[in-house]
Amino acid sequence: MASIEFVRVTKSFDKQEVIKDLDLKIEDGKFTVLVGPSGCGKTTLLRMIAGLDPQTSGSVLINGKDVSRIAPGQRGVAMVFQNYAIYPTMSVRENIEFGLKNNKVGKAERTELVESISRAVGLYDYLDRKPSTLSGGQRQRVALARAMVKKPSVFLMDEPLSNLDAKLRVQMRIELIELHKKLGTTFVYVTHDQVEAMSMADTIVLMNKGVIQQEAPPDRMYRQPSNCFTAQFIGVPPMNIAELGANGVKYGFRPESANLSAEPGDELFSLRGRIATREMLGSETIYQVRSGSGAFMIKCREDLFAVDQEAYVGVPADKLNFFGPDERRIEARDSSYRDYLEALRGQRHG
């Protein structure tokens, strides 16, 4: 088990800075998910922990110890790659065993470890098979077993589920959560899929363009996004955000926070619009409502409206978010918060 710390880390590729002066602490034993759009630097961070692409400046600490000069194989970390990176010429057993052999683990112990791990991930019957004869899900398990068998203090995973089909992905998600619970080690997981992040993480680290946007548990990330980017990255559909029309301030609300009704309600924010599109998803229906101040996505439990129908969108005061001109969240305790609420009340039915 180990904590990980980045101290003023900068990484450049060909003189172009991808990450600049980044500080981050990843807690011991937590399932931390690094999430963000592609090219945001999340994989770069992961590879720095592994030592595959060392930082240009600054230091990476594992368990308080600077590992900048320690080779990847000696950092006590294991990694699951996006394409699994299984050794194609070795059997499943040899794949799992390779790291142990290099670490000079005795034969008897090795065999025992390989067999117990392969039983745990359901690969026992496939130990003498070549990877090319396995399915995608089984290869994924080989990659996991190869990482687990080394008993690392940190598990690094680089979009490990992105090559699996949708059904298997959901199943593996649950298995990974259980695995983390069982092992209790530090997991660092990289994904661009916010659903994966929300479902598995203890802590989400949301990045964009090499900068950490917010670092919080999933519920806080969802309910109190610290800026417009977070608000619109997390959640499907993302948060509705529109200009308030005063001081460059924006207001926003989640699609499911709004009530859609035929008559104007008594909520603080109310808006008249026309249903532009309707997506019936079974348990819920998503409407796009167009009005003078823009288009809003509204998620309803009931399927009451049809396209081109006129409807009122109402949002209660406690579900509204405000973002300043710098796109940062304006907290409710802030003195200007009340003014913006009033400004929004003044725009009723806009």
Partner: peptide, 8 residues
């Protein structure tokens, strides 16, 4: 890279 992490 996997081999490097496997301390080969």
């Amino acid at each position: 890279e996997a081999a490097a992490l496997d301390n080969a």
